[in-house]
Design a protein around this nucleic acid. Structure first.
Lengths: 118, 118
DNA sequence: CGTGATAGTACCCTACAGAAACCAGGTGCC
DNA sequence: GGCACCTGGTTTCTGTAGGGTACTATCACG
């Protein structure tokens, strides 16, 4: 179903409540457990695959690599490969990623503040 | 790092990066496309099932009812049945739900502001 | 010559998201 | 009477996202 006709501006200024708006995709990407955690982890600076894997406790390598690929596709993170041995790959936030990190941090903070460990 | 001890069933101050922390569940719930949209829709006041279904374009009744049930289980929304004909069921935010709506609104706003419609 | 580290991929399986059909049960319409 | 229509879901079926574990390539080190 290509919406690539002049239907493109059908959701005007961007409305996440409109099904065919491209911002739905972005919401689906960001409103996701692993994306929110990964972007938060990268706020501290670039991280390697293994570092992220350890930090995002419970994520499997397959899911981490898929999540990062999706974030890369949406220009939220960059992937830099260093031709070294052992191999080194660094993931870093783009400017867009850094700006997205702000509302995501607010969401994580709300969760940590409002879930009582009682 | 400060990873002195990983508590078995409690993560102390609440850390979404800890796999077994109960706040992981809450993050998983809120960091979700439909939850973010549903909570946003309910900010305007209580809504009926059919109203939400129309507002959250593209959601299926099964997924909507499951999402609302999950939000209800976490005390973010209330479900009120009126014994009328035709049947009427109203969903409304709790106080906790209203406070969660704030960071979620920020996230939706970021998405709408940063996804170019072309 | 075997072990370890890194950054993934391959394989398999389960659970859930999503689409479409269906249900209860009361009302208005003819 | 009989039938379509309203609401708020549930049931059924299927595709895909997620997850566990094993395995790869490359080189350094002992």
């Amino acid at each position: 179903m290509s919406a690539s006709t002049h239907l493109a501006d059908s959701c005007g200024p961007g409305d996440v409540y409109t099904a065919m708006c491209p911002c739905r995709d972005m919401l689906d990407l960001l409103a996701n457990k692993w994306s929110a955690l990964a972007i938060g982890a990268l706020e501290d600076g670039p991280q390697r695959f293994g570092e992220l894997r350890r930090q995002l406790q419970g994520i499997s390598p397959k899911v981490l690599s898929a999540s990062l690929k999706r974030l890369e596709d949406h220009d939220l993170v960059t992937r830099t490969v260093y031709a070294e041995v052992p191999p080194r790959v660094e993931y870093a936030l783009t400017d867009l990623g850094h700006s997205a990190a702000v509302p995501l941090a607010a969401l994580r903070d709300w969760v940590e503040d409002n879930v009582t460990t009682h």
